[in-house]
Structures are given as C-alpha cells and as structure tokens.
Design a protein around this nucleic acid. Structure first.
Lengths: 129, 129, 129, 129
DNA sequence: GTGGTCTAGACCACC
DNA sequence: GTGGTCTAGACCACG
C-alpha cells in the first residue's frame, strides 16, 4: 500500500492517514468508486489499531471523501477526486507556509533559507525523475 | 516578546517553545549570558500554563541551551549561540524535507510544487524587507 | 412492492422490515394465508442481502405473524391480521410518544411543537387524499 | 444533569448525546461560553464509557457547537445557541415526519392517526403545565 | 468478510 | 483536574 505512518511525527496517526488518503485520491492512486483497504487490513499493514484507521475513515466520510458500501467496505466518493485535488494544494501550501514562517522567525538569513529550500526542492525533483 | 505559539499547529506547545528559544538564540535575539523571561512572565505573555513553559525550559537546560543562574533565573549558556546556529539549519531543513516529501507522495506535479514553494518563499522575503 | 427501506434511518434494516410486514398485514395489503414474497425476491427488490430478509422473516415467524407452508414459502398466519391491527397502534403510538418526549425535553415551545406536528399531519393527510 | 440515555433506543448513544446537547443549548439550559460537564463526569453520570461521551463531544466540536478550552474542558461556542435553536426544529421535524410517514404506510386510518397524535400531544402539553 | 458501536484502560499535553 | 490519542477486544448488522 501507498500509505506510511511516521509514529514520531507529532501529528496524530489518524490525521496523517486522513491527509494521505486525500492525497492518494488527489493523485489518482484511488479513483472514484474504488474501494479503499478495509479498516482491519490497513490496520494490520500499518501495525496500527483498527479503531485508529476507523477514526480516519470516519472523518473522511464526514468530509465526503469516502462513503460506506454496506457490507463491502468504504469507497471513494463520486466527486472526491476533484475536491481532493483542490484541497491538496491548500493542505500543502499551509504546511509550506508554516515551515517558512518559522524559518523566518528564526532569523535565518534570507539567502541561506532560499538556498536550503532550493536544494531540497532540487533533491525532491531528482528523486521523482 | 518574539515568541508566538500556534495553538492549532498540532505540534506540542512546549515543543514550539523549545524550537523558538533555540531560534532566538541562534538569531542573536538572545545572547550568551542573557536572562530569558521568567517562567511566570512568559507564561502570562503567551497565555500558556507556567508548567508548560517550565517544561520547555527544563528541556532547554538538558540540552545545554539554558542554564540556571542562582537567584536570578535562567540564562543563555555560554556556547549555546554557536550550537543553536548550527542546529537551526538542521531543524529547519528537516521540516522543509518533511513537507516536500509529503508533497511529493501526494503526486503533486513537480512544476506546481515548485511554483507554490517559490511563491511562498517570495512572500516571506517580501515580508522580511 | 409496498415495502421501502430507509438505509439512513438508524433503525436496523431487518427491524424496519419486520414493522412494515406487520403494517402490511394490519392494513390488509397482505391477507391471512397469502404468501409473502420469497426471501430472494424481496431481497432483490429492496437491494438488501437475503440474510437480512431471512432474519426479518424468522422473527415474524417467531411472533406468529408468518408461518411456513411446506414447499410454498411463507404465508401470513391465520390470526395475524387481527393481532397486527392491534399491535400497529401500539407500535405507532410508541414512536409518536418518543418523538414528542424528545421535543418536549428540547424545551421547544409547546405552541411551536403543536404547529409543527399539525403541519406535518396535514401534509400526510394531503398526500393520502 | 439534564441528559438521559435510552440504551434500547436503537439510536447510537453518542448520537442521542449529540442531539440532547444541541437541544440543551437550544433550550437555554447551556449558555454560550458555559462549560459542559467533563467527559469523565458525564460518562460516570450516564454510566457510559468516557470514549462514547468524547465521541459525541468531538462531533459537536466539528459542528461548532462546542469548543475546547485548554485544560479546562469544553464550552458552548459563541454562536451555537442561535444555530441550535434553528437546527432543533429541523431535527424534530425530521423525526415527526418519519413517524407519520411510517404510520401512513401502515394504512392506519387518517382519523385514527390524527386522534392518536392529538391525544399524545395533549398529554405532553399536560405534563408541561 | 465488511463497517459501526461500545467498553476498558493506557499515556500525553495542558491547566 | 481537563481533553486527545491510541490500544485491545467485544458484539452487532449487513453481504
């Protein structure tokens, strides 16, 4: 599976899952109507408690990203891909903004910050290629 | 004061404080030997519980960033500025790496990601000017 | 068919079915001795799992509303109509009582509640006509 | 306390709680800014698991009825009373509609239904006086 | 097999 | 003391 949890992230596990499901939907890894891994299966894979996965799925359901299919599991909602693609940019931008804001408050030299960010950005693009 | 807490950040408050103190030291806002605000004073300013500030100070003391001055409070340690300047880059780079990694896993288009980051970077530099 | 399931009702599906069969018998839509739809047929019609229909029929059999007819399926029991007519009022009154009790606990103004109920009652009578 | 759970209601406990908190806010039993009973206290009173209460509170927080006050508990949100008063009518009307719809499908005589409802309504008004 | 609910009890951050 | 998160394990309804 394409989900991975960082147990030392500080961010709650269910929250990491919520984000990653949205990203998977946004990125086309999960298509509209497609069943997501079952609560139990995903919990086993991530070595996480089923309740934790269930909580993430419940929130995704409340946000109309997932919907339950009786007796079958949970599926990506009809219009979720479009909305997730939109939200993806927002979620990432917020994070980027937080990091840069903190960096700026740390009085790191503007040039040094830019160099650092450019380097990491280049590294990411490298990996992608 | 130059500290500011984001209560909705997900990151623990004392952890935000630890980082910001280190950054203040790295950035020269707090110099070696200088007294940091008292637990009570800072707690009042940030509308945070004194225990939370105390916990942050305790951790900073354990990391030799702060040291107690008998009868006076806590002061920035002798060699803290140099070490904090070094650590600052590491702390920020880690964060940058995290957010870019997440963005990449979200399959956000490389160009779109770069554009987004450049825009935010420019915005930060603008504010700084 | 005269049954309809509300999948978002909160009430268990088999329970809705049990009630509706009783009501159909009470209302004369199903007469004593008449065969009810087969489990499979009804399950298909309601897009419900056969097990669910079977469970409802089992309970109705236990309550002597339905009885098995060897080789034919299940039929409305001899004295079911009379008993269902009696029970119908009880079942409905219980529900009415529940909703009014909740409304009262909510401190909704008595006049407002009456107006609301009268309006809905009129609407129902309208539909019926 | 003014909450009471019906363990045989069919409706989930946390859902009953969500409704009742909204009703209490709508009815003025809980005012804006006022702290609701703590999770642990309410759980004890209702002989329900704290997680169940927490789940209800979490949903109420998501709907902006409650908000957490760090270290203090949860309080009724600023504009919750107005919104709850509005929602109260909707919630009750939905229930009334469900009951009457079922009654109508049961082919209960229109006059008989009206008589039944009027009787119960009168009973409720009597209690209130 | 699936999700939904509930219980029980742990640890953490915060007041 | 407070809420927030997580674990573990139970039962139910549904397919």
């Amino acid at each position: 599976m394409f989900f991975q949890i960082d147990f030392a992230d500080g961010l709650a596990i269910y929250d990491q899952l919520v984000r990653q499901v949205k990203f998977a939907v946004a990125g086309g890894l999960l298509r509209a109507g497609e069943l997501v891994p079952s609560v139990r299966e995903l919990a086993r894979e991530l070595t996480v408690n089923p309740n934790t996965v269930a909580r993430a799925y419940r929130q995704l359901q409340a946000e109309d990203v997932l919907q339950t299919v009786r007796g079958m599991g949970m599926a990506v909602a009809e219009h979720a891909p479009r909305r997730c693609r939109t939200e993806r940019v927002t979620l990432i931008r917020t994070r980027v903004r937080q990091v840069l804001a903190e960096a700026r408050r740390s009085r790191l030299d503007a040039g040094e910050l830019r160099a650092l960010v450019e380097a990491e950005l280049a590294a990411v693009e490298q990996e992608e290629a």
